[in-house]
Computed example of a mutant assay.
Amino acid sequence: MYRTTGQGETVISDHSRVDWEIPGGTGKKRPIPTELDTLSDATELTYANKIDVIGDIGPDLMGFSETDEAKAFANNHVGSTITYKSSDRPLVDKIQMTDME
């Protein structure tokens, strides 16, 4: 989940702030935390990228405030990590649902 605050800050689900797992029978889709205390500033997160899990901001990105957690998750789900600063519009435009059910 992502939203923009009244101050113009973009916040998204911080997967370091929630205890979750991918429910059986859902393919690779994970639940989307929506409570305000699960959101963090998007510019401060490390993202698991090119993963085999559908997250709340697309099939390829999941944000973590704990870099080690992002790296471990990406490693376990065939991906890599990036920072907000290393992402750009072409990267976001390339993210699309392929081979995901």
Rank of each mutant, 00 (worst) to 15 (best):
E66C: 07
I82C: 09
I54W: 15
L61E: 07
I22G: 11
H77D: 06
T26D: 06
I82Q: 03
K71H: 05
S40P: 01
W20R: 09
T43G: 14
S13P: 01
I57M: 15
I22W: 09
E66W: 07
F64N: 06
Y84P: 03
A42D: 12
A72E: 12
I32L: 04
M1N: 10
I57G: 01
W20D: 12
E9K: 11
G27I: 07
I12A: 01
I51R: 06
T67C: 07
G27Q: 09
V53Y: 00
M100L: 11
G8K: 01
L39Y: 04
D93F: 10
T34P: 03
G55P: 08
Y47P: 01
T67I: 10
M100W: 13
G58H: 14
H15F: 15
P23Q: 02
D52F: 00
I82M: 10
G55V: 01
T46N: 02
D19H: 07
L45H: 00
R17F: 10
M1S: 12
R30I: 12
V53Q: 09
N76E: 15
I22V: 15
H15W: 15
E101D: 14
R30Y: 04
I82N: 06
D93I: 13
T4F: 12
T43W: 07
T5C: 00
K71E: 12
T38N: 07
G63F: 05
H15T: 06
I22R: 14
V78K: 09
I12C: 07
T10S: 10
Q7W: 04
G27L: 03
E66Y: 09
V92D: 14
T38P: 01
I95M: 11
E69P: 03
K85F: 04
G27A: 04
L45F: 00
T34R: 10
N49P: 02
M62I: 15
I12E: 00
E35T: 14
N49M: 05
T10H: 05
A72S: 13
G55N: 02
K71M: 09
D60N: 08
G63R: 08
S80P: 03
N76R: 10
V18S: 08
P90L: 03
D37W: 10
